[in-house]
Simulated scan of single mutants.
Amino acid sequence: MVNYHTHTAYCRHAGGTAEDYAQEAFRKGLETLGFSDHLPFPGDPFGYRMPYEEIGEYITDVYREKERYKGQMEILCGFEGEYIRGKEDFYEELLTAGGCDYLLMGQHMYLDRLGQLCYAGGLSGTEQYPDYAESLTEGMKTGYFCCVAHPDYMFINSFAWDGNCERACDIIIDAAVKEGCLLEYNANGYRRGVDEFEDGLRLQYPHRRFWERAAGAGVPVLIGSDCHSPEKLYDEFMDLAWLDAKALKLNIVTGWGRKQDGQNGERI
């Protein structure tokens, strides 16, 4: 069992320390635990996450658990962060001298084609979906992100399925295949529950239509807990996510390798 999508109290909307999660992971028998708190950017332009000045403290805490469980369980230090055009030096620094093992691309905020910053969960219509998808494609092309967290996050918006939805899904999935980037099937969407949308009752994500298309493309898929408390690290919703992902016949993988040049390597 593995999980690479883990949040701690540092992100300001979760509970538990790195030690708490490591203890729970070891108790549950996980082989790999990846920490991925929301990435703060210099100047703290986004809220709902740790201040930039706490990056070093967060990394130190995770590395303490790395050492504590060395030889017993693999612990990785990562971040879930947006790809923002022009921040490439920042990502490069994190993955080299910064002590960061990996980055998940969690595109909550993105730059559209006009260079305007948009919140993916508060869009005005499906006509914005392709721009969102293109921002994910840009991020995948950089090679800094090993996996796209909840790539179907745009469906948190309540719009009926249409051609824009199909086009956006295809852009994301085609890019993942071409760039060799994993897509995450996110268990936290199950914890959020079913809501009433314009096109009926459904989860915010995972969106079945997206993942049916992903299954057809054979894109590699990582199951992520996206847990915000230790007891949810590997719970019944992770089990449900695994069952549904298997039923969809997704190409499930449990890890990745990373080449020394910073590009995505072979999957495990």
Rank of each mutant, 00 (worst) to 15 (best):
V148I: 13
D37L: 02
I84W: 01
N251K: 01
A120W: 14
G218Q: 09
D37M: 00
W211K: 01
T254Q: 08
K87G: 09
A217T: 09
I173S: 07
Y58I: 03
I172G: 04
Y10S: 08
L183N: 02
K28G: 06
Q116W: 10
I173G: 05
L183G: 04
P130D: 09
L39C: 04
S225L: 00
A9T: 08
G115H: 10
A22H: 07
I84Q: 02
G43L: 04
Y58C: 01
F41W: 02
V219N: 06
A215Y: 02
D20M: 07
A120T: 15
A9M: 11
T32C: 04
E82L: 10
R12G: 11
G78C: 07
Q116S: 15
Q116T: 15
C227I: 02
G43F: 02
V177G: 11
P45S: 04
L248M: 08
E198Y: 10
H5M: 07
P130Q: 03
L123N: 06
I171M: 11
V62C: 00
E134I: 14
P220K: 12
A247V: 06
L240G: 04
E24H: 05
L203V: 01
H228Y: 06
Y234G: 06
F26G: 08
G143M: 11
D170C: 14
D44H: 09
A14W: 04
N186A: 06
D101N: 12
M73Q: 04
N264C: 14
A168P: 09
L182F: 07
D235Q: 14
P220W: 11
K178A: 15
S124Y: 15
Y153S: 13
H5A: 06
L183C: 02
D37Y: 01
D37H: 03
G122K: 10
I84H: 02
Y4D: 05
L39I: 03
I252K: 02
R49H: 05
G257F: 08
R209W: 01
G193E: 05
A18G: 05
G189I: 00
E138S: 14
E231F: 11
E53A: 14
Q107E: 15
G47W: 09
L240F: 06
L123Y: 03
H5Q: 10
S135Q: 05
D20N: 07
L243W: 04
M50I: 06
C165M: 09
P230F: 03
R12K: 15
T17E: 03
D101W: 05
I268H: 11
D195C: 14
L248H: 04
D226A: 01
